[in-house]
Design a protein around this nucleic acid. Structure first.
Lengths: 162, 162
DNA sequence: ACTGAAACAAGGTTAAC
DNA sequence: GTTAACCTTGTTTCAGT
């Protein structure tokens, strides 16, 4: 998935220093090794070597720029809940392909419980959502679909607890 | 929010080159300006200047390291759906504080429709989820709570379409 | 085995055009 | 927008603990 080689997937054991480094990098990956090293009490390249190890082990999967949704005209977040009775072998594959290739769709999850699939997407407005919906049902047959719009994003982060 | 100064929030108009740069940075922010410039047919610091402008305008809000959830022992994603009739003024504030300070909680959304709040969290396993649930209801009174677990992550990205 | 200091190479930043 | 100088920072080497 990520942009670092992950041929051999070894479960790496993280010590306190690794966790401190990762916590910093999850919040701001634009820091220089010098500054990061100071923050975790390590020299520039003790820090460097640990990060390279974390990348090689696949703990750090990539570094990305996070954009402001408002600034790129995607101010509305929507969750689309799907219940289906079509459990045919290729229906799911069709659904995977459709959702993966629609860029407004940020997350697609196959769920436990009575809800079958959950989609998280960002759109400009209601009209934009409707176009997304039309595009989706055009590519894959869906029966029971309901959308719920986000009124307030109380929290939204990529930072995992360590 | 982000780590770049956003005192003045100007709606920046993005041209084709800006969008290409942003698309690259959203996928891999570890690229050098040289390589990025080549990818979008720009010199090293024409590229640099555009990126600085995008940061200053708040379009790029930050750069972060994305970790592999499995590698840090958070292999289970869960959505927690909350319906409430407690619409007291300070209940919401209490709920905001509680969810924002629980690190396993990655997303908290106030919703339209019959569902009132939606929480997205990552935990190690079912036992870990139960501890999260206990912690949550200990900090804020919740009546109608139901959890749905993710069986398969078909898609999960931070990349916004441009 | 992992650390830190110093040398080196590469890339970020600035200035000039 | 580009090219070229500059100087911070990433990377490698090496020696010490």
């Amino acid at each position: 998935m990520g942009c670092y080689p992950t041929n051999v997937k070894i479960m790496m054991t993280l010590d306190e220093t690794d966790r401190r480094i990762l916590t910093h990098l999850q919040r701001d990956a634009s820091m220089a090794f010098d500054g990061l090293g100071q923050a975790v009490n390590l020299s520039r390249n003790a820090c460097w070597r640990r990060i390279k190890a974390l990348e090689a082990a696949g703990v750090i999967s990539k570094r990305v720029a996070v954009l402001d949704p408002q600034s790129v005209g995607l101010g509305l977040m929507v969750f689309i809940m799907i219940r289906t009775n079509a459990h045919a072998p290729d229906w799911l594959e069709q659904f995977r392909n459709a959702t993966r290739t629609i860029p407004e769709v940020l997350g697609v999850y196959r769920m436990s419980g009575d809800l079958d699939y959950l989609i998280r997407a960002r759109v400009a407005d209601m009209g934009d959502y409707d176009r997304l919906y039309q595009r989706l049902i055009h590519r894959v047959p869906l029966s029971d679909v309901s959308a719920s719009f986000v009124m307030e994003e109380i929290k939204d982060t990529t930072e995992l607890p360590l």
